[in-house]
């Protein structure tokens, strides 16, 4: 029986994933094909399924195998990434850092103005259980629902990852770094509780979300929803390339959740505000906006060296 397909966070098919199906003491194994297809000699019903492949987060899930509805199994690769949730806060409000890492990491808060200014360290993050700082991807099109990180196995109240937004408005970044040097950074927009300047700057979060392909969709490919099968080769599978002159490729658009990591917002640890912006799409994201903010602060555009960021929060359906 074709049970489903397995893909990574980019909806790219993963071959060679080991599957274990268990029910009532019976156990069967299978291995995913080059297309990510999972065939197993099982009957319909409820199964505990364990997925394992080196380089990805192992997990188990309870599924109802029907034979007619294919299960979109998802595995998260070991690459460190993270995001703040919410991605924007008012000064004094709390937000939660959601980081995926296979190793303990140090987390620091920085403010990105003309210079990267260290604000404070949030300490070293790890847990007693083996590999307990890895996150789990839901088996679905989470580009629509959000990744729901920090929701499975985060029951201990004092270990919730909430932090309070600093007093000063601005573009903040969280820096996560492991002992062996793996690094990722992700933005946090902090607006003032009350206007502090005569100029308001908007971060283009809605546009950034439109371009964020984490999960396998953005407003520029798979706009109406994930296809039935994961991608093997973009140029062969995506309508963006197979039907290049018909954009937007679909008449309808499914929602895109803000609650996803945004790899294109990562700014390398050593990048400075006057450096050229690395990457093709980063200029559209926070790395590009940071250059404007930095210039405003050094030019004292508002006379106080402080600016106010006020992101506009639109209903997701507006996308």
């Amino acid at each position: 029986m074709l049970v489903g397909y397995v893909s990574d966070e980019n909806y790219v098919a993963i071959a060679g994933v080991e599957f274990g199906f268990e029910r009532d003491g019976a156990s069967l194994t299978a291995t995913s094909h080059a297309s990510g297809a999972v065939f197993a000699d099982i009957t319909p019903g409820d199964w505990r399924v364990t997925l394992l492949k080196s380089g990805y987060t192992d997990k188990h899930v309870d599924v109802n195998v029907t034979g007619s509805e294919l299960i979109p199994f998802r595995l998260l690769s070991d690459r460190m990434c993270g995001f703040m949730w919410p991605k924007w806060s008012r000064s004094g409000d709390t937000a939660e850092y959601c980081v995926h890492s296979t190793k303990e990491f140090r987390l620091d808060l920085w403010r990105y103005g003309w210079e990267k200014k260290f604000v404070r360290s949030l300490g070293w993050c790890d847990e007693h259980g083996p590999n307990a700082m890895v996150q789990i991807l839901p088996d679905c099109d989470f580009t629509q629902t959000g990744v729901n990180w920090n929701r499975t196995g985060y029951n201990l109240e004092y270990q919730k990852h909430n932090i309070s937004a600093p007093e000063r408005s601005g573009l903040y970044y969280l820096h996560a770094k492991t002992r062996d040097g793996e690094f990722c950074s992700f933005p946090w927009i902090v607006s003032p509780p009350n206007p502090q300047a005569k100029i308001a700057v908007l971060s283009s979060t809605i546009t950034q979300n439109a371009y964020n392909g984490f999960g396998g969709r953005s407003n520029y490919f798979n706009r109406d929803g994930l296809p039935n099968r994961p991608i093997v080769n973009s140029r062969q599978d995506l309508k963006r390339y197979t039907q290049p002159d018909t954009w937007p490729f679909e008449d309808t658009a499914a929602p895109l959740s803000f609650q996803r990591p945004e790899p294109s917002s990562c700014i390398p640890e050593d990048d400075q505000v006057t450096d050229t912006i690395a990457g093709r799409i980063e200029s559209v994201f926070a790395p590009g906006e940071w250059r404007l903010l930095g210039r405003m602060e050094t030019a004292r555009v508002d006379g106080t060296r402080g600016i106010r960021l006020r992101p506009v929060l639109r209903n997701r359906s507006a996308l």
């Binding site: 364990t50 847990e127 083996p130 590999n131 789990i136 196995g153």
Partner: peptide
């Protein structure tokens, strides 16, 4: 702090899904 009383009968696959520290 994990499996304080004894090892469970089967090894761990994913801590957050299996250890009582995270699941309860």
């Amino acid at each position: 702090y994990i499996n304080a009383d004894r090892l469970p009968p089967t090894p761990i696959i994913n801590s957050r899904l299996e250890l009582k520290r995270y699941t309860e």
